[in-house]
Structure formats: structure tokens, C-alpha cells
Nucleic acid binder design. Structure first.
Length: 159
DNA sequence: GCCAACGTTGGC
DNA sequence: GCCAACGTTGGC
């Protein structure tokens, strides 16, 4: 089994939680993911030290605004058990939790954000299947290959 | 605010 | 197991 670092992209609405918020708190439990595919990536794919592109969605200029890292192994998302939470899931129990999360740690804020428009310009190189730009894809946690990672971060300097 | 695309739910 | 209805995501 490979121990090589893996790469991911995680979306957040900056009004809810931005890269600046992460910079402030340092580490944050990535609560509220309620999509099975995204959950599986966190639960089964992520390892401490993996690197994460921090993406702002649902905002004026959607795109990659920072770098984060996986700071914990996966554990049950506490919000699924809290009746008062908007993420409460009545079908989840402590014995058989349904939703998992990881802690995400701040690494750095990009000097120049990489906009979705910029990213789209490189769709050929990134691959049409790249879930960030695939038509209609709404995954909030998705894997990034090391080639994609390299290409995307090379756009930081170009602007 | 609109709405296309998609995932989930639940009746049958 | 099908699929219509519904809810959500997220770009624009």
C-alpha cells in the first residue's frame, strides 16, 4: 500500500467558512458533508498530511483561495446526533454513525486566488472528467491527482 | 434570484 | 426495482 501523500479539493461557501476563517482558527472539523461520495473520500481516502485545495463556492469569484491539510483521521460528524443542528440525521446513531469528517488544518492563503474561469481554461490538461469542472458535478470533496495539483498551483503565479 | 443538474426519498 | 417528486448545489 502506498504511503504517498494524496491530494484533494474541498469546497466551502466563504460566507459560512472561508480560508480566512481557517487561518484564524488553525484547525476545523469539516462538518456538514451529507453526500455519500464525499463522505467516502473523507472516511476511506484521506490520511493525515494529505494536501487540500481550499475552494470557495457560491461567491462572486469562485475558485481556489488557499491550501489546507488533512489534520486527523476520519471520525463521526457530531452534528448528525444533535437534534438542534441543521445537520441532524435521525437515522444515525452513535453505534452506527452515517456521516464522517476529518479535521482540516490551515497551511496558507494563495497570493492570487485561482478562479474557476482560469481553471476552466485548462480543462483539456486537467481532463474532462475532473469533477470540479465536469458539467453538473456538485461534489464538495473530491480527489485531485498530483498532476492536476501541480497544474492548478502553477496558475497561482500567472494570474 | 434563477435554474440546470444531480442525489435522495418513498410510493407503488 | 422503477421513477416521479423533491431538495440541494453552485454557477451565473
Amino acid at each position: 500500500m502506498s504511503t504517498r501523500k494524496r491530494y484533494w479539493l474541498m469546497k466551502s461557501e466563504p460566507e459560512d467558512f472561508s480560508i480566512d476563517d481557517l487561518a484564524r482558527v488553525g484547525t476545523e472539523p469539516w462538518t456538514g458533508v451529507r453526500n455519500y461520495q464525499a463522505r467516502n473520500f473523507m472516511r476511506d481516502g484521506m490520511r493525515v498530511g494529505d494536501e487540500v485545495l481550499f475552494y470557495h463556492s457560491n461567491t462572486d469569484v469562485p475558485g481556489i483561495y488557499g491550501i489546507a491539510e488533512v489534520a486527523s483521521t476520519a471520525y463521526p460528524d457530531p452534528s448528525q446526533f444533535k437534534k438542534s443542528s441543521k445537520y441532524f440525521d435521525e437515522k444515525a446513531t452513535e453505534e452506527t454513525p452515517r456521516w464522517f469528517l476529518v479535521d482540516v488544518g490551515y497551511v496558507r492563503t494563495l497570493a492570487h486566488p485561482i478562479s474557476l474561469a482560469q481553471i476552466r481554461e485548462h480543462s483539456t490538461d486537467l481532463g474532462e472528467e475532473f469533477a470540479l469542472i465536469r458539467k453538473g458535478a456538485r461534489l464538495s470533496v473530491l480527489p485531485v491527482t498530483s498532476a492536476q495539483w501541480k497544474l492548478l498551483l502553477s496558475l497561482e503565479k500567472k494570474r
